[in-house]
Design a protein around this nucleic acid. Structure first.
Length: 427
RNA sequence: GUGGCGGUAGCUCAACGGUAGAGUCCUGGAUUGUGAUUCCAGUUGUUGCGGGUUCGAAUCCCGUCCGCCACCCCA
């Protein structure tokens, strides 16, 4: 039984047709990050399990049931495939004293791993670009992170991505509100259904989302978070809202937006699209002022976000479905004795001059070689047969525009090919 | 992790108890060395995998894997 091996569930191959779209996307995103002064940092995919337990939070879904964790039998260490990268980034900043000479703007990219049930836009290995502004206290830093996202959506040509915003206060404010909320829910426990009761202690804010009318009556009379927020929190949030307004970035306040990771405080936000079904969050982030200290470092404020590449590319593909075809300037076909050697020489010279060139391999009739040349997407076919070889020339035949072919001296080809490629070509 | 739907040629799909098909793609040809259009010809499969029912299973049943949808949660 030759069991054919296949990729693990929820882990995908990105095949060349899609990969060229990824490359284009990544190059655009990286230029955008550079223009905002963010510098790349690269962390390991594997970290001590403890890092995520401490950073993300013991009670979170991620830590409780979604991590790829195992014990390294060679030395007894408990290891985990990273489910997100903020924890790693902060760990690295602490370990290498990155903030010793002031705040830093950093970005990272790469695969993350969560053992969830896969569906469209949700995979067990998925990819993120993340930006972290480490060491900045004020709402100006939060605003910068959010506003730069808005610029990226424009650049990517994405529309219909809306911003949801909330403040969850300090951990102390959150704790006292949480206590008050749970007390309220417990006092009305008779009106709660099983789902609400389950959420009551695990994640009391989630009870607000219940569609059960009876539960909603309890929700209506519940205390408001606002009453538990201090002046500093409100001032920070007001400052952020003012800056977003000045930047022309619209948002909707979502008091139930809490996000699933424990390290957040004050600002939390999500960018959401309605075109992706249940997996609509395309980017999420917020402030996490306590994380440095929580991981054993000197206290430092910080904020950041992470965006999902698969989801953004799905949106972009919908907006711009034409396949991304890599640019190929020339396809060299050759026929007859000695032509292969000349073709190899010429292809090399053209590549040295900066052109993308494919040389035909595998022989075959001129007709079949021309078919390959056309299918390759090349702008022109370069034909080297016995005639051309004898004359020291190459036939240049445009494949994308209506223009007569011509013979060009081999020695001048590198200089003249630009003219043939500049001819207006269908993309 | 729970529930629902689905898996047939490389791709998109038909056949829905009685010999598994079409389009597309691919390959070759239509007078000498010229692609993409047109015409002709040809190849394509353990019907996801394993078991069961039946004279006979792509088709019905069970299991399993994978995908999709919803829940949960999030990128």
């Amino acid at each position: 039984m030759s069991a054919t091996l296949q990729a693990l569930r929820g882990m995908n191959d990105v095949l060349p047709g899609d990969a060229s779209r990824w490359l284009e996307f990544e190059s655009l995103v990286q230029r955008w990050l550079a223009r905002h002064g963010y510098r790349n940092i690269r962390m390991p995919l594997i970290e001590p399990t403890q890092l995520f337990r401490r950073a993300v939070g013991e009670q979170t879904d991620i830590v409780e049931k979604e991590m790829y964790s195992w014990r390294d039998e060679l030395n007894g260490e408990d290891l985990t495939l990273r489910p997100e990268a903020t924890a790693s980034c902060v760990r690295a900043a602490i370990e290498h004293h990155l903030l010793h000479d002031g705040p830093k703007r950093l970005w990272y990219a790469g695969p993350m791993y969560r053992h969830e049930r896969p569906q469209k836009g949700r995979y067990r290995q998925f990819h993120q670009y993340g930006a972290e502004a480490l060491g900045f206290t004020g709402p100006d830093s939060d605003a910068e992170l959010i506003v730069m996202c808005a610029a990226l959506w424009r650049e990517l040509g994405l529309t219909g991505i809306r911003l949801e915003l909330n403040t969850i206060g300090s951990s102390a404010e959150r704790a006292s509100y949480r206590t008050a909320l749970i007390t309220h829910l417990e006092n009305n426990v008779d009106s709660l259904d099983a789902d609400a009761k389950r959420r009551m202690h695990a994640n009391p804010l989630r009870v607000f989302d219940s569609k059960n009318p009876l539960v909603q009556t309890v929700v209506q009379s519940a205390p408001s978070m606002m009453a538990y927020l201090g002046d500093a929190t409100l001032a920070h949030f007001d400052g952020l809202k003012r800056l977003l307004g000045a930047a022309g970035v619209g948002f909707t306040l979502n008091p139930r937006l809490v996000r699933g990771l424990d390290y957040y405080n004050l600002t939390v936000f999500e960018w959401i699209s309605d075109r992706l079904g249940a997996q609509g969050t395309v980017c999420g982030g917020g402030r996490y002022d306590g994380l440095f200290e929580q991981l054993g470092g000197k206290p430092a404020p910080a904020a950041g976000f992470a965006m999902g590449i698969e989801r953004l590319i799905a949106l972009q593909q919908e907006a711009k479905p034409e396949p991304v075809v890599p640019l190929l300037h020339a396809y060299v076909v050759h026929l007859g004795a000695g032509a292969a050697e000349q073709a190899l020489r010429i292809a090399g010279e053209l590549r040295d001059a900066g052109y993308a060139v494919v040389q035909h391999c595998g022989g075959g009739s001129l007709k079949s070689q021309m078919k390959k040349a056309d299918a390759s997407g090349a702008r022109v076919a370069l034909i080297i047969g016995e005639d051309e070889l004898g004359a020291g020339e190459v036939t240049v035949k445009p494949l994308r525009v209506a223009r007569a072919q011509a013979r060009v001296p081999a020695a001048r080809l590198a200089a003249e090919l630009t003219g043939w490629n500049d001819a207006k070509a269908g993309t």
